[in-house]
Design a protein around this nucleic acid. Structure first.
Length: 420
DNA sequence: TCTGGGGTCCTAGGACCC
DNA sequence: TCTGGGGTCCTAGGACCC
């Protein structure tokens, strides 16, 4: 049996935990740069605010309806996520699937009262963190996802839905829109509905050969999972990333090569730090730049360039240098850039590296420098120590509605006043 | 004025090798 | 009448996820 614990409207709920006056009020959280809506409380959903809506388009609506608006505070959400996940881990092995979702592996626990246990888990998480969750429990991961969605739809379920008897599953799937199934995106939804498949149940009645032909092996797996055959594995240990990217939209369009250069150097530095964090080296680096696609009258330019490195590295110094050179080779004078990014790929574990006989870089010195830099940044806050290429003028982002780092900074810990 | 960011997996087709 | 065939690696593109 698998569980899927999904935090309800996670970012919005995090903001609410630290400001209870927001309970009952619509809340939205915006992406970097305060660009788009990336989380909404139920009240905000009811106002018709959609995921990905540009903020400027809903600003008036938000104002009229006293919507509480927040800039994304990922430090806070990451920390809250850890708290939730560590509570879940008390009950079963967990596979952290995303910042707000975790699978639980209940195999070997057959015979326990899953319904009671599930409600207990949901209550505990709520009590200890303030975050409401929807826990679906079912024979496969895909069905657990369905059950979790059911919880959200029916608050009466009390945060947990245990779904295991074939007749119950059939009843649920017959009313479950195909487009809401885990693994069915816009394209597959369209394909399936044009073939008369409206619900998850219809899908399970298709011939498997057809499913595989149209939707590849992934579709077939989904088909089996919905029919109760578990075929998506459970991975407790998070796998190393296969690529690491840092990409940002700028606060404003810019044609200034120096400004773009600073940003790209900083993205490369952030990538390198992530890379060292997972103890990997990269064999490839890509830089891309992009003009503002919404400004159609202006000249458009997108270009990306990849460089294979003769010796894999995790050094900020090297990677910022490569990034700068790649950028220079693609930067077009006169174009107003809106967005840039650095992507590291061909990642491999740091142990057992093939070195280059003619390698001019003193890698041991680089390593020691990087260690000191990471340690100091860990102690004194991120990006206190940076390389000259990245500069001290950190890339600017519009974050006009930022909440406090309540749980990650002593200065901002919530004060509780006791009155007798 | 103002439109996010970071990932994964699968498949088809071309290049290349023997 | 009729061009060999099978394997591997790489890349681009498409689909999806949160």
């Amino acid at each position: 049996m698998y569980g899927l614990a999904d935090c309800n409207n996670f970012y919005a709920s995090c903001e609410r935990v630290f400001d209870p006056s927001l309970v009952g009020r619509p809340v939205v959280v915006l992406s970097n740069n305060d660009g788009c809506v990336i989380a909404r409380s139920n009240e905000a959903k009811r106002l018709g605010i959609k995921m990905g809506d540009p903020y400027f388009q809903i600003r008036d609506l938000a104002r009229r309806n006293r919507v509480a608006v927040f800039s994304a505070n990922f430090a806070l959400y990451g920390d809250m996520s850890h708290r939730v996940m560590s509570l879940l881990r008390r009950y079963a092995p967990t596979e952290v699937y995303s910042i707000d979702e975790s699978f639980l592996d209940f195999s070997g626990m057959e015979g326990i009262d899953f319904d009671a246990q599930g409600h207990e888990i949901a209550r505990t998480v709520r009590r200890y963190t303030g975050i409401p969750i929807s826990l679906g429990i079912a024979p496969t991961k895909t069905l657990a996802k369905v059950a979790s969605k059911l919880c959200k739809q029916y608050p009466k379920l009390g945060g947990c839905c245990f779904m295991h008897r074939p007749q119950d599953i059939e009843k649920v799937l017959r009313r479950f829109p195909i487009g809401e199934v885990w693994g069915v995106g816009r394209r597959y939804e369209k394909l399936l509905t044009t073939h008369g498949i409206a619900t998850a149940w219809d899908f399970t009645q298709l011939p498997p050969q057809w499913v595989q032909a149209k939707m590849s092996i992934v579709g077939l797996r989904m088909w089996k999972e919905l029919r109760g055959e578990a075929c998506i594995g459970f991975e407790e240990a998070p796998a190393d990333k296969k690529r690491i990217a840092t990409t940002r939209t700028f606060a404003h369009d810019t044609a200034d090569p120096e400004e773009v250069h600073r940003c790209v150097a900083q993205y490369a530095a952030v990538c390198a730090e992530k890379l060292r964090h997972q103890h990997s080296l990269c064999g490839e680096i890509t830089v891309f730049i992009l003009t503002n696609r919404y400004r159609e009258s202006a000249p458009q330019h997108y270009e990306s360039r990849l460089r294979k490195l003769s010796v894999p590295t995790d050094s900020t110094l090297e990677l910022t240098q490569h990034a700068a050179q790649l950028l220079r080779s693609i930067f077009r004078t006169g174009a107003a850039y809106k967005r840039a990014g650095v992507i590291l790929s061909d990642l491999r574990p740091k142990t057992g590296v093939q070195t280059d006989l003619f390698d001019p870089t003193d890698r041991l010195r680089h390593d020691r420098l990087m260690q000191v830099m990471d340690r100091m940044n860990g102690m004194y806050g991120r990006y206190k120590i940076v390389t000259a290429a990245a500069g001290t003028e950190f890339f600017t982002m519009n974050r006009n509605h930022l909440s406090q780092p309540y749980t990650t900074d002593w200065e901002h810990i919530t004060r509780v006043k006791c009155t007798r």
